[in-house]
Amino acid sequence: MIRLALIGIGTGHPDHLTLAAIKAMNAADLILLPRKGDAKSDLLDLRRTICAEILTGPTHVAEFDMPERAATLPYLDAVDAWHDAIAAIWMREIGRHLPDGGSVALLVWGDPSLYDSSLRIAARLGSVAIHVVPGITSIQALTAAHGICLNELARPVLITTGRQLRERGWPDEADSVVVMLDGGCAFQGLAADGMSIWWGAYLAMPQQVLIRGPLATAGPEIMARRAELRQAHGWIMDTYLLRRERAAISRDAPTS
């Protein structure tokens, strides 16, 4: 029997680990760490650091190379094939290191439930018992870093991606929107009137950068700073909260 723990580790700081995450890591026979190329070696180094600080027993740590997602297929087809390839690698590594069964853990950025596909990949593994340990999300890290509430009083919040914001525009059902996985600064396609933004990159990491303010002025600053950071580090992880004034929403609402 193989037991798989998907452990949320927050956004990069060892202090983000919960007591449950620490216990799960130390209870595992094997922890698998993904290598994503030289450009993202910082992410592997952070996982290595977390293991070095947290593990106190005989847990074995092994690394594997992540496959690349095909750029020539339609997005959903490419993601589906990519997940198949990752699942096959997980099973190969588990069979190599735990031929007689046991417990394996994967360290997931943020929380396994939020814009992460570890659970979808794990579902491809067949008769594997899956245990999820929740973690601090980038959304929590963002609002904590800026010292703000996620939602307006008694108002909803929508969590979406840069792709969805770019293709569909501002959602009618919310006045606060959290945007994740945005490689192209989708906010630049929105009307900036009455809009504010709270942006954060490398949240909780030593290189954390925060920018906030009216979208009209903060937006261009974020775009320039983001390009500089990506060039300097070779990768970037960022997220942001957009909020529209209720008056601006009312002005843009369709009339009958």
Results as ranks from 00 to 15, higher is better:
125 L>R: 09
29 D>M: 13
60 H>F: 13
119 L>R: 12
59 T>Q: 06
51 C>P: 12
79 V>K: 07
199 W>F: 05
61 V>D: 00
84 D>V: 11
215 L>F: 04
209 V>H: 05
151 N>Q: 15
205 M>L: 12
186 A>L: 04
122 A>R: 09
186 A>F: 07
233 H>T: 06
168 R>E: 15
31 I>P: 00
66 M>C: 04
40 K>E: 03
48 R>I: 08
177 V>Y: 00
104 V>P: 13
69 R>C: 02
122 A>N: 08
28 A>V: 10
159 I>K: 13
179 V>G: 01
76 L>A: 15
193 D>M: 01
162 G>T: 13
10 G>P: 15
26 N>W: 14
197 I>E: 01
164 Q>P: 02
61 V>C: 10
112 P>E: 08
61 V>E: 02
29 D>N: 15
83 H>W: 12
204 A>F: 11
252 D>M: 11
63 E>S: 04
101 G>P: 10
227 A>I: 06
113 S>M: 11
237 M>P: 03
174 A>Q: 00
89 I>W: 04
16 H>N: 13
77 D>A: 13
69 R>W: 05
95 G>H: 09
154 A>E: 15
99 P>A: 11
29 D>C: 11
58 P>D: 10
28 A>S: 13
12 G>R: 07
30 L>G: 11
127 S>L: 10
111 D>G: 10
79 V>E: 14
22 I>V: 15
51 C>G: 05
221 E>L: 14
99 P>C: 09
175 D>Y: 02
46 L>S: 07
179 V>P: 04
188 Q>D: 13
178 V>Q: 00
183 G>I: 02
163 R>D: 14
47 R>F: 01
235 W>Q: 00
256 S>Q: 14
248 A>N: 02
114 L>H: 10
209 V>D: 04
73 L>Y: 03
255 T>Y: 13
23 K>A: 14
56 T>D: 15
12 G>K: 08
109 W>K: 07
250 S>H: 12
88 A>T: 13
220 P>S: 10
249 I>K: 07
125 L>G: 09
133 V>G: 06
65 D>C: 06
196 S>I: 01
69 R>P: 00
16 H>R: 02
126 G>V: 08
194 G>Y: 00
219 G>K: 12
161 T>M: 10
38 D>S: 09
5 A>C: 15
63 E>D: 06
218 A>K: 03
194 G>F: 00
11 T>R: 04
51 C>D: 02
199 W>V: 04
15 D>K: 13
95 G>L: 02
128 V>E: 09
177 V>S: 02
125 L>P: 03
200 G>R: 06
137 T>F: 05
160 T>V: 12
153 L>I: 14
